[in-house]
Simulated scan of single mutants.
Amino acid sequence: MTGADRLRAEGRVEGRVEGRAEGRVEGEAKVLIRQITRKFGIPSAQVADTVRSAGTAQLELWADRILTATTLDEIFAP
């Protein structure tokens, strides 16, 4: 295997890892939007965009908060 072959192989592995991570974040966002919809009704485009643009740590925090939240504001409070 040449150096170029190794670099290509490493790039493919990195691409798969990044793709899986992005897929997990998208899945977490999708579940949270579904939970919001079931609990509070269809979210506004702004709420949906906020959820879709969040990272894993933020999504996990909001996923925990939705369990006890009585309003959307309680989920997204700083």
Results as ranks from 00 to 15, higher is better:
A63H: 07
L7M: 10
V47Q: 02
S44C: 04
G19V: 05
E74Y: 07
R12C: 10
V17Q: 01
E74R: 12
D73P: 03
A57Y: 06
K39R: 14
I66S: 02
Q46V: 15
T2N: 15
I36H: 00
G41I: 01
Q58G: 05
A9N: 09
D64Y: 09
D49K: 13
A77R: 10
A45Q: 14
A4K: 13
G3K: 10
V25Y: 06
A9I: 02
E18K: 10
G55S: 04
G27M: 09
I36F: 00
L59M: 03
F76S: 00
A9K: 13
G15E: 06
A54Y: 04
A21E: 13
A45W: 13
S44A: 03
P43H: 09
D49Y: 12
T50H: 09
E18C: 07
A21D: 05
Q58S: 12
V13L: 14
T56V: 12
K39F: 01
A54R: 06
L32S: 02
T2S: 13
P78N: 13
G23Q: 06
K30F: 03
P43G: 10
A69V: 09
D73E: 15
L61I: 13
T71Y: 04
V47L: 11
R6W: 07
Q35M: 15
E74H: 10
G19K: 04
A63K: 06
A4F: 09
Q58Y: 06
T70D: 12
F40R: 03
I42F: 08
L7H: 13
V25E: 15
A54W: 02
L67A: 12
K30Y: 04
A63F: 03
M1D: 10
D64Q: 15
T71K: 05
V31W: 02
V17G: 00
E60S: 13
S53D: 11
A48E: 11
V47H: 02
Q58T: 08
V13I: 15
E14V: 04
V13R: 13
R52F: 00
T71E: 08
L61A: 12
A63E: 07
R65T: 08
R34A: 14
K30G: 05
L59V: 00
R52P: 00
A45F: 15
L7R: 15
T68L: 12
G55D: 11
K39Y: 01
V13W: 07
K30T: 07
G3H: 11
V31Q: 02
R20D: 07
A21F: 04
A29R: 00
L67C: 10
D5K: 12
A63V: 03
R12Y: 15
T56A: 14
E60H: 11
A21I: 09
Q58L: 08
